[in-house]
Design a protein around this nucleic acid. Structure first.
Ligand code: SF4
Ligand code: SF4
Lengths: 141, 141
DNA sequence: CCCCAAAAAGACTATTTATATCTTTTTAGG
DNA sequence: CCTAAAAAGATATAAATAGTCTTTTTGGGG
């Protein structure tokens, strides 16, 4: 349960790789894909999504490639994940309580809200700079 | 992302309903299903899983039905969810780091461990007695 | 012993989501 | 105008989800 998809995993790998490069280094999709071990065509789709919302900047044609859209420390893991996976929704009633006519009196409902809050909070507390750094942020795996 | 399946949602509804009944009241599957608005055949499958691990007790034949396997206050939401959805796994590397040869140096890995811990902790902090009570546990939805 | 009620077990189906790949088009540099 | 590279769109396959249906087992009561 609650499993990140391949798409999400690949998205993170790709953008973290970018975050580890100099801010002005334009990277080829093919290079990124090879470096992070992701099917290039799949990563292309993912980076198109990133590009649309400005998480990365893209340049076409000769000498083209990708750059981070903002400074790495200003991009949270939450943004990256939600960009490709959609919002964090432990149960549909957290987004539209009206879907379930039990939501008025349901004691489970607030629990899912709490789960959502906790997960978002963890992911929001991590930025791409930390993720890209060579220093292992956490000793205890 | 991280969405509970119908199966999980139905499972919770069903067992919370049981938890709201007197401890010795044997409930018919058909009654439970009707009360919590779940397809009876689907709920049957779910309760079979519960029964196998002792979360509920079942009785066959005339006068048969279901009882809670233990006192409601001793069953956590985490147990219920994991019984039908499997363990809480935000990313496969949290269970088998060896799957990913990047796990040694990956800074994302510990984040997923943290997410897992937070979610489990929230779900473990809620028991069926609370969920079944008429009092709305949380004012702020 | 026979009938009926109810859960258990297993096979089967349809729909949706995930995981890609392939082809064509657009953009840009030299 | 040729080539490099991303964007867009169509297609394909596999797996998971969300059920249903049928048959079997178990137990109680007449
Ligand atoms: S029953 Fe409660 S938890 Fe389930 S969908 Fe409705 S409001 Fe949400
Ligand atoms: S790259 Fe990191 S987060 Fe992704 S699967 Fe490997 S260890 Fe886990």
């Amino acid at each position: 349960m609650m499993e990140l998809t391949r798409k999400g995993e690949y998205a993170i790998r790709g953008i973290v790789y970018l975050a580890g490069k100099p801010i002005d280094k334009v990277c080829l999709l093919s290079d990124i894909a090879a470096a992070v071990d992701v099917p290039p065509t799949f990563l292309a789709k993912i980076f198109q999504q990133f590009s649309k919302i400005g998480l990365v900047k893209s340049f076409r044609g000769t000498g083209g490639g990708f750059l981070l859209g903002r400074a790495a420390e200003n991009i949270t893991l939450l943004e990256v994940v939600e960009a490709v996976e959609g919002p964090i929704i432990p149960n549909r009633c957290v987004v539209t309580p009206s879907d379930c006519e039990r939501s008025d009196f349901c004691n489970v409902h607030p629990v899912w809200k709490r789960v959502q809050g906790e997960v978002r909070s963890v992911l929001e507390g991590v930025n791409l700079k930390e993720l890209a750094s060579k220093e292992r942020s956490d000793i205890n795996n």
